[in-house]
Amino acid sequence: MIWIGAMFLVIIVFEWLSQRKAKVKRRDKWIVLGISVGLLLLSEVLFKLKDKWNVTMLFEFVGKSIDVWISG
């Protein structure tokens, strides 16, 4: 988990600096930062819960719910 955080941190800093060098608009920088932080949080959650709950289980759950909803 620490390593995922470290990797995303490096990416965020790198992108921030390269955007600053390229004189990108502030709005774009913040959007990229927001998306990166959002993905970092999502990654940490996914990794933390990977043994108990994961994406495949989510899809299975959604699929079953839709089946139940369709069949009434």
Binding site: I4, M7, F8, I11, I12, F14, E15, S18, Q19, V24, D28, V32, I35, S36, L39, L40, L42, S43, L46, F47, L49, K50, D51, N54, V55, T56
Partner: peptide
């Protein structure tokens, strides 16, 4: 281009965490 690294990193983590 600024979004490429975080998204690919997320895909990498997702690939590890997506199934047991």
């Amino acid at each position: 281009k600024s979004l490429s690294l975080p998204i690919v990193a997320f895909v990498g983590v997702l690939s590890i965490a997506m199934a047991r």
